[in-house]
Each structure stands twice: as structure tokens, then as C-alpha cells.
Design a protein around this nucleic acid. Structure first.
Lengths: 101, 101
DNA sequence: TATCTTGGTTACTTTCTGTAAGCAAGTATA
DNA sequence: TATACTTGCTTACAGAAAGTAACCAAGATA
């Protein structure tokens, strides 16, 4: 008989944010939109996984994708309101890192 | 020529917290110490990985381990000050989850 | 025509995680 | 006495996730 220990929404959030690269990607987009290759080189993620994560985050409504039909094609990623609302969490982590690492 | 985009400490924090199960384990210990099997069943992690994570977190000074020499042996895990200092980050995530999920 | 660009995708390898079994060392049960 | 039972692990193996490198479209440039 296990008792429910954690709220579903909170558990989902923790699982979502706990996936590798996710917080780093969101942090990249906090201040301005960025294109695929910028994020890729900035955080050192492989293109295969970055593509996967951006799709997931878009599906979650955290990131939005805008295609500019230039040549070569330009794709800009940015945060939605839901994504921007994560700023305090990241800032909190930043403070903790500053104080304790 | 890539510019350094993120502070080392912050990146370390994000990588640490971004590892699977880590935030859920810390959340388990926020209010009281727990023994191995409690954490295991509460969050549904495998014993193999829980053991690995607790060792890492102990090495980082986030979790402390206390052995009670009973039979069968009892081992209690709790947060250090450094670990407790993560509470605002988890609370922030909790609020976000409440507001946006 | 050959080459370069970006934002992907695909196939393959390596690393990580889950599953199940086993272990020590006392206690309780038969 | 022998067997089973407990916790907190560890080990061996299998499956899932991530890294690597090659490739693609489609237009711009040399």
C-alpha cells in the first residue's frame, strides 16, 4: 500500500526538467531567440538529440519554432510564455550554484 | 571561436540537477530523512541506480548517510545544508507546475 | 559544374538504466 | 539445527537513450 507522495503535475515537471539538456536549452533561450546551430555549439549537444528535445519542448508548449525561408534556411527557436515562466527556477539554480559550488 | 556562454558553476549545477532522478530524490528528503527502501518505492527508481545516485549526491555534499547497526541494517539518508538550500528551486518548479501544467 | 550553407535525418556504437538474482548478517520460524 | 526473512546493497545481463559520422535538400556562390 504505497501512498501518493507527489503531485502529478509536479512530478511531470520534475521529469520534464530532469531530462538531459532540457534546462540548458531553456537557459539558452531565456533572453533571446536562437537558431539551431547556435544552441548546438553553445551547449555542446549533438544535433540528433537537440532536434529531438526541441520537438518535445515545442509539443509541451514551452518552445516555439519559426522558419525563415532564406537560403540556407534559417530556423529560430524561442520561449513561449510558459517557457519564460521557468526563469525563476533557473535563476534559483544559478543562485544556489553561486552560493554552494 | 566559441564564446563561453554559461558560468562553470551554473553549468555544473544544471548538469547535476538534470541527471535523471536527482530532483525527485532531493524532494523526498526535503522534509525528513528517509531510508533506502522508502525512497526506492516512493519514486519507483531501481535500487541499482538509487545506490549510484545517493553515492554521487553524498560525494557532492548534498546528501548525508547514517548507518544504524540494527538487524537488518538501517540506513537513513538526509540533506546537508547544501542540499536544503535547493528547496527554493524545487518550490519554484512546483509553482510553475501548478500554474502551467 | 562543383562547393558551401543550415537544419535536419539515418545507421551504427557507446553509455546509461532497468531487471533479476545474489550476498552478508543477524532474527524469527519450524 | 535448518530454513526463511529482513535491508541495503552489488553483479550480470538486456534494453533504452545518447553520441558520432555520414548524408540529404535546395538554393547561393565561385
Amino acid at each position: 500500500m504505497t501512498t501518493p507522495v507527489i503531485c502529478d503535475k509536479f512530478e511531470k515537471a520534475l521529469t520534464l526538467m530532469g531530462k538531459r539538456w532540457v534546462t540548458l536549452i531553456i537557459f539558452q533561450l531565456l533572453n533571446d531567440s536562437k537558431r539551431f546551430c547556435e544552441i548546438e555549439t553553445n551547449i555542446g549537444i549533438s544535433g540528433r538529440v537537440l532536434s529531438e528535445r526541441l520537438k518535445d519542448l515545442e509539443k509541451e508548449g514551452i518552445v516555439k519554432r519559426k522558419v525563415y525561408d532564406e537560403t540556407p534556411v534559417r530556423v529560430e527557436y524561442s520561449l513561449t510564455e510558459k517557457g519564460k515562466a521557468l526563469e525563476p527556477v533557473l535563476k534559483g539554480t544559478q543562485e544556489w550554484a553561486h552560493d554552494w559550488l
